[in-house]
């Protein structure tokens, strides 16, 4: 029930945010996206980018920038784990003005910290098959990553984008694993 409420609120905010945005130039923005590890472990990501340095080129129809992108992601696999990822990425972006708004591409390197609650076991009732006594353990680790994203304008203050992120999670010296996230969502520009 709680999860449904959260999802409903997010959908509502997706509808309202474009109405609030007014600027027609690329500026500060907020990204809300589906965030899936290997596509099959679904989740949600919220991120933004802050320009450290930017250059307007070719008469203001394009902009290059160096940016820092804070990101918070959550993803899960039912009856297996829930994971939270906080990440900071540094990258290079190119944004171009199109008829309907701003298109963008970026490449970034990041470092994240992931915290996971893993369900290692449980009891199953022979009476009805229900699960109880779920045994959870918590793991955490650093995750350097590289990501590429591309976005296309939908409205002047709204673009759709996807981002692919490849990372290596270091939980301990024995347990390191490569991982791939696919992110698909919307970028809302603010004035």
């Amino acid at each position: 029930m709680q999860r449904k409420r959260i999802i409903f609120s997010l959908i509502l905010s997706l509808a309202v945010l474009p109405l609030m945005a007014q600027s027609s130039s690329p500026g500060k923005h907020l990204e809300v996206a589906y965030f899936g590890q290997f596509l099959v472990q679904p989740g949600l990501s919220i991120s933004s980018s802050i320009d450290i340095q930017s250059w307007a080129i070719t008469g203001g129809i394009a902009k290059r920038s160096l940016f820092v992108r804070p990101q918070f992601g959550y993803y899960f696999q039912a009856n297996s784990h829930q994971s939270y990822l906080a990440k900071l990425a540094f990258g290079y972006a190119v944004q171009k003005r199109k008829r309907r708004g701003w298109a963008h591409q970026s490449l970034s390197l990041g470092i994240g910290y992931q915290l996971s609650a893993i369900q290692e076991g449980f009891s199953v009732s022979l009476a009805d098959g229900s699960r109880s006594a779920r045994n959870r353990v918590y793991t955490s680790g650093w995750m350097p990553s590289i990501s590429y994203s591309q976005g296309v304008p939908i409205q002047p203050q709204l673009s759709g984008y996807y981002r692919l992120l490849i990372g290596q999670l270091f939980e301990n010296t024995e347990r390191t694993s490569a991982t791939l996230f696919a992110e698909m969502g919307l970028r809302f520009y603010f004035k």
Binding site: E120, V124, A127, S130
Partner: peptide, 26 residues
């Protein structure tokens, strides 16, 4: 693992079976 309950098919069996969520790490 709810299959274990399906196979027993008897709600009067009040027993639990401990299960490992088998997800090897290395």
């Amino acid at each position: 693992p709810a299959i274990l309950s399906d196979l027993i098919a008897d709600p009067s069996v009040q027993a639990n079976v401990d299960i490992i969520n088998y997800r090897p790490k290395t």
